[in-house]
Amino acid sequence: MTTSAPARTPRKLGGVKIPTRLDRRYLPVVGTFVVLALMLIVGGSRYENFLTPAVVSNLFINNAHLIVLAVGMTFVILTGGIDLSVGSVLALSTVITAALLQAGWPPAVVIPVAVAAGTVIGLAHGVMIHYFQVQPFVATLAGMFFARGLCFLIAPESIAIDNASFAELATWVQIFGEWRMTSSVLIALIVLGLGFVVLHLTRFGRTVYAIGGGEQSALLMGLPVARTKVLAYVVSGTCAGLGGLLFAMAQRSGYSLTGVGMELDAIAAVVIGGTLLTGGTGFVLGSVLGVLVLGLIQTIITFEGTLSSWWTRIVIGVLLLIFVLLQRALTLRRT
């Protein structure tokens, strides 16, 4: 879409220096931030007890797994791909965790195994997509079905988790005054930090952006396209596995029907966070803002009380529409 632009733009040698007020790349993220701030302000003025540390803490606690998913999804979408499997892989991870704990395995073994399940599926996606040139949409769709089927195979019913040390880990909480931070929030924030560092300060991260900007170009620039592309799906798969762990910690159970449609929430969060689905533009921090926006919609609808739950979906749809139109307007002005 953007590659055909130069053909009709005026050419001047030396390149006119663009006045650098606010880099256009940051505009969508700023937009997300503004929406988030507006929602907080509106919520705070409409309801008592809305802008309290407890509510904000809960926002993070309830969405920790989604933050992790969104970070992984950002990697994949930045390369211009998509990962539809994250909801199912998350479910698979909860089921593996619950089943293995039930079988008496120690958490120290179970946790890596559950996360690694996501890693392996991510690797399989990467291989299918890069080496067999299956479209990301199809490959991860197959992965989605595969993981979901595997869930049912392992545990058709919900399995409760009653392992003591796992419960201890799940209930670990740090309290700063009225603020609370659970172990899952801590993990989510660490993942976020890692995601940021990797994307901006490593060659792998920059190659992710480069692939999104033009895979052929990245290849001809001599960047390790194959490895990076596969790794992006590995990151997403691993994040989904980890997200499942966080979800299992929150729910204290493993159930094969968890996370149905959660991939949509993750994708919506990434898009609302200002990442273009064509790849190459976006920030992991934006995705987290996107998750918070989604979480706040839920919170506001809960506070409103009279609104039925389906309004959540409609509002998310409308928000998506607004952000998509905004991004469209931005790209149109550029060309």
């Binding site: 299918m128 079905f145 595969f146 979901r148 089927g149 049912f152």
Partner: peptide
Amino acid sequence: LVTPLFMALVVI
């Protein structure tokens, strides 16, 4: 319930 697994295998 395991149908998805077979779907996945056929698709793959």
